[in-house]
Structures are given as structure tokens and as C-alpha cells.
Measured scan of single mutants.
Amino acid sequence: MPGGGPEMDDYMETLKDEEDALWENVECNRHMLSRYINPAKLTPYLRQCKVIDEQDEDEVLNAPMLPSKINRAGRLLDILHTKGQRGYVVFLESLEFYYPELYKLVTGKEPTRRFSTIVVEEGHEGLTHFLMNEVIKLQQQMKAKDLQRCELLARLRQLEDEKKQMTLTRVELLTFQERYYKMKEERDSYNDELVKVKDDNYNLAMRYAQLSEEKNMAVMRSRDLQLEIDQLKHRLNKMEEECKLERNQSLKLKNDIENRPKKEQVLELERENEMLKTKNQELQSIIQAGKRSLPDSDKAILDILEHDRKEALEDRQELVNRIYNLQEEARQAEELRDKYLEEKEDLELKCSTLGKDCEMYKHRMNTVMLQLEEVERERDQAFHSRDEAQTQYSQCLIEKDKYRKQIRELEEKNDEMRIEMVRREACIVNLESKLRRLSKDSNNLDQSLPRNLPVTIISQDFGDASPRTNGQEADDSSTSEESPEDSKYFLPYHPPQRRMNLKGIQLQRAKS
């Protein structure tokens, strides 16, 4: 015994090295194993092979420090690593049964499904019991997946119906949107047309105001020219009257000059006056001389005659003075006559000038009245044309509004008919989907599995289990394997941990 101590140590070291070499393959693929292994699927088989106990299973599945599946799978690998070579062998058998691809990844061999460990530990009855539990578990999982698949199909059909409904609603909204954009385009076109009409109206108003201003300026210029013409006519008439007055005065002077006595007659009258003065002096001298030589009687007679002569001279002087006064009065009367005649001529000139001015103003008033009548006639014609244009424009607008209203009513009726057609199509689609759903539900009910399987069917299934373990590994792997896509769409199922009653199965096998 003492001599065998070193050999035992060498043997233990060799086993430990082999164990480390075995687990080295697992550690190399630890990331892939932790990512894809579900500990809840492996722990029943590991407990059946007595590699882990209930406490280890509870620690792996329910520990609060292991929230994710990767953490739980890593903890399970750590626990199996502590179990040595047996933990490695049982772990590979569980991978061979549940995850053939991972088994091939770790060992590089094809899975054979021999279950040597569980046969050694529990015997064939334990293997049968384990396989029966796994089959029931798989059936329950398949039923749950079928239910989930039916629910998802129903949800899918519902979503398809909602999608069709949303599509129809979208078509309806597109119809309304198209109608909205069309009405918006019509409104924009009408606004552009309105702005264009306003611009045209403004341009016409500006043109009309400009023409009116030009016409008023032309009328004012015409009036100024007419006033200048009238003033020139007035000056012409005044000059004609002055010329006529000057002509009359010149004719009067000419007549006075023609009626003036001649120079010879004046000289002859002056000679006669001198001769008479000479004779008068001679007679006076004779009379003076006679007075001195005459007697007293003759002197008395001469005195009487002288007195008579003096009286006659006085009378004559009075007559001469009277004649002079009369001549002066006649001259003054002639001057007054000439003055009055001049005033008369001036008044006649003024009267004729005023008459011509009156005629001029009368003509001017007639011209202004004619212009006013023409302006009123043009204004009435413009008003009439404007009223006709406004009436025609309003009539066109009324007809346009009428046609637009008819078009809008027809478009609304068309839209309502399209919407009604879309709604009826939606109703038809809904009815078809309901009919299809009812038909599929009836087919699913016919094809669904019963909840409680008979014992004979279970025994028959387990009677055929042994050949399947040898020759149909691919079928078992397809039913027991969970793909990543299934984990996305289906909830994980945790079967209840219970042991099955095998009395009925044993009785059935005894009868057979």
C-alpha cells in the first residue's frame, strides 16, 4: 500500500489531465453553448442521470443573480465542470439528445442517441419513463405552439383585415386629398384670375382717368384759346370803332377846312374895312368942321342928330352885343352839340362793343353748352356701355358659378359613389376574411389534438420509441430542437415537474 501511493497520485493526475482536456473543448465553445442552450431543457435529463440535484437545479433556474438565459447556462456549465468526467459525459449526452448541432460542434462527431448513462443509472424502465415524459412534454409544447400558431394566424388575419381596411381608408383619404388639391388648384386659379381682372380693371381705370385728364386739359386749352380769340375780336371791334371815330373827325375837319373863306376874300374885306374906317374919319372931320361953321339952329339939329346917332349907336351896340352873345351862345351850343355828338359816338361805340361782347359771350355760352351736351352725351354713352359690360360680366359670372356648381355637385356625387364603392369593397373584403377565418377555424378544430390522450396510444408510441432511437435521429431532433426563430415568436414553456403513473402502461404491456 505505501508503495502504491505514487502510482495512485500519477493516476489521479492523469485523470485530472484527461478531464481538463475534455472540458477544454467545452470551454472553447462556451460562448456558443451559453448563447443557445436552454438550461430548463437540460436539467431534467441531468437530474435523471443524478449529475445534479434539486438544489443545483433551483440555483440554475431560479437564482435572482442569474437574470438572463446566458448567465444560467454559464452557471450550469460551471456546476457540471465540478462534476468531473461524469458531468462531461452526461452533458454531451444531453447535447446529443437536445442540441445535435452543438454536440457536433463540441465533439466533431455525429449524434447517435445511445443514452448509456441513464440506462446504467435507471435501467430501461427509467429510460422509458424519461422518454415518455419527454414525449408528453413535446406534445404539450407542440399543442402550445399550435395554439400560439393559431392565435398568430388569427392575429395575422386580423392584421391583414386591418391592413385592407387601412388601405381602403388610405384610398378614401387619397380621394379626399386629391379632391382637396383640386379644389385648392381651382381656388388658386380663381385667385389668379381675380387678381388679373383687378389689374385689368385698375389699368382701365388709370387709362380712363388719364384720358379724362387729357380731355379736361384739352377742353381747358380750347376754352383759353376761345377766350383769347374773343379778346382779340373785342380788341378788333374796339379798334374798328376808334378808326371809324377818327375817320368821322377827319371828315369834319376836312369839311371845315373846305368851308373856310379864301385869302383873297379876307384881304378884300380888310380893304373894305380900311376904306370904311377912312371914310368914317373923313366924315367925322367934316362934321367937326361943320359944327364950327354952322348956326345955332343947325347946331341944335346936329345935337339932336348926334344924340339920335348916339342912341342909334347905343342901340346898335346893344344889338351887336346881343348878336355877339347870341353868337357866343350859338358857339357854345355848337360846342355842346359837338361834345354831345362825340359822347353819342362814344356811347354808340361802347354800345356796339357791348353788343359784340354780348354776342361773343352768347356764342361762347352756346359753345360751352354744346360742349357740355357733348360731354353729357359721352358720359351717358359711357355709363350705358359700362352698365352693359357689367350686366354681361355679371351674367357670365352667374353662368360660370352655375356651371361650377354643377361640376362641383357632379364631382361630389362621383366622390360619394367612389367612397360608397370603396366601403362596399371593404365590406366584401371583411365578409370574405370572416368566411375564410371561419373555414380555417373549423379546419383547425378538426385537426387539433385532444387534450387527454388514451393510455393505449401512449403505450403504442413508446413501443415504437426504441427503433426510432436507432434510425431516425433527424426526426427526433426536428421535433425536440428549438430554433432561434421559434424563440422569437413563441413563449418558452415550462412543464410541471411531476412523475407519471406507469401502472397503466405496465398492465397494457403485460396484456400485449
Rank of each mutant, 00 (worst) to 15 (best):
Glu7Met: 10
Glu7His: 15
Met8Leu: 14
Met8Arg: 12
Asp9Met: 13
Tyr11Pro: 15
Met12Ile: 11
Met12Cys: 07
Met12His: 08
Met12Leu: 09
Glu13Ser: 12
Thr14Glu: 07
Thr14Val: 11
Leu15His: 08
Glu18Cys: 10
Asp20Thr: 07
Trp23Ser: 02
Trp23Tyr: 03
Glu24Pro: 07
Asn25Tyr: 01
Val26Ile: 15
Val26Thr: 00
Glu27Phe: 10
Asn29Glu: 00
Asn29Gly: 00
Asn29Tyr: 03
Ser34Val: 13
Tyr36Asn: 06
Ile37Leu: 07
Ile37Pro: 01
Ala40Gly: 09
Lys41Leu: 01
Leu42Cys: 04
Thr43Arg: 09
Leu46Val: 07
Cys49Leu: 10
Cys49Met: 13
Cys49Asp: 05
Lys50Cys: 08
Lys50Ile: 14
Val51Cys: 09
Val51Arg: 06
Ile52Arg: 08
Asp53Cys: 09
Gln55Lys: 08
Glu57Ala: 03
Glu57His: 06
Val60Thr: 05
Val60Gly: 00
Val60Met: 09
Leu61Thr: 03
Leu61Asp: 01
Asn62Met: 03
Ala63Met: 06
Pro64Gly: 04
Met65Ala: 05
Lys69Gln: 05
Ile70Phe: 14
Ile70Gln: 05
Ala73Met: 04
Arg75Lys: 07
Leu76Phe: 01
Ile79Val: 07
Leu80Glu: 02
His81Gln: 11
Thr82Trp: 02
Lys83Asn: 06
Lys83Ser: 08
Gly84Val: 04
Gln85Pro: 11
Gln85Val: 04
Gly87Tyr: 00
Gly87Ala: 03
Tyr88Ala: 00
Val89Ala: 10
Val89Asp: 14
Val90Ser: 12
Val90Gly: 13
Val90Ala: 11
Phe91Ile: 01
Phe91Met: 13
Glu93Cys: 00
Ser94Gly: 12
Leu95Glu: 01
Leu95Val: 00
Phe97Ser: 03
Glu101Leu: 04
Lys104Asn: 06
Lys104Tyr: 01
Lys109Pro: 02
Glu110Met: 02
Pro111Ile: 09
Thr112Ser: 12
Thr112Val: 13
Ser116Gln: 02
Val120Glu: 07
Gly123Ala: 15
Glu125Leu: 14
Gly126Ile: 14
Leu127Trp: 14
Leu127Met: 15
Thr128Cys: 06
His129Tyr: 04
Phe130Asn: 13
Leu131Gly: 01
Met132Arg: 05
Asn133His: 02
Glu134Pro: 06
Val135Ser: 07
Ile136Lys: 07
Ile136Asp: 14
Lys137Leu: 10
Lys137Phe: 06
Leu138Arg: 13
Leu138His: 06
Leu138Ser: 14
Leu138Met: 14
Gln139Glu: 09
Gln139Val: 08
Gln141His: 13
Gln141Tyr: 14
Met142Gln: 13
Met142Lys: 09
Met142Glu: 05
Met142Ser: 11
Lys143Tyr: 07
Lys143Ile: 10
Ala144Tyr: 11
Lys145Asn: 13
Lys145Met: 09
Lys145Pro: 06
Lys145Tyr: 11
Asp146Glu: 12
